[in-house]
Amino acid sequence: MYKSWWKILASLLVIYSTIWGFLSKAPELPILHESIRNLYFHVPMWFGMIVLFSISVFYSVRFLSSGNPEDDLKAVESTNVGVIYGVLGIITGAIWAKFTWGQAWSFDVKQNFAAISILMYFAYLILRNAIDEEQKRAKIAAIYNIFAFPIMVVLLFVLPRLSDSLHPGNGGNPGFNAYDLDSRMRMIFYPACLGWILIGYWIYTLVYRLRSLEKKHA
């Protein structure tokens, strides 16, 4: 079943959103202008990352109750892919910010907290690799992951709303619905998010399967 329907759906959604991301009419906005199209590429990275980290935390919890090393592998590999998505999100955000907010890193609250949460997950991966004994490693990593996840959620979705941020939907700024996301953009934005989330999940299943094969032959 290497050609499941959802993999084909993911490919179609991503291709659809890329084509129409360039060609559709976008609302004319001050400052952002045509760069609003980045919404179809930058934001799905973050949604994908959050879904992958959620999968990871799910398997971490399951590992603690089952003790099954497969669950541990699933948790780690989904974090790996999630971190890649996060780094891509940070870089695309910095490029976008350079040309709209004036500088790549303007120490916006959401930018800072996103960087911190990525670093937190780097720490998770390094911590996990630092422990040799397998059961202990899996247990400590799972517990760390379960603590890291709510902190990530708070950093990305709660704290930026409490202070001023350049990102829409935070602080004094209105949310997407208030100004720039009209129905034309939704027709592309939601498929783009779903598509990139599915692609992320697909890559995660690939690396997980690879890792479990490697483990069997080690």
Partner: peptide, 27 residues
């Protein structure tokens, strides 16, 4: 602009096909 779209979609298609072949090899 269609030239740019063609290139971007081609890159995306290439990567997606690559994912499918990886999947098949793993299988």
């Amino acid at each position: 602009i269609y030239v740019v779209v063609a290139c971007a979609v081609l890159i995306l298609l290439g990567l997606l096909i690559f994912l499918f072949t990886l999947d098949r090899r793993l299988k």
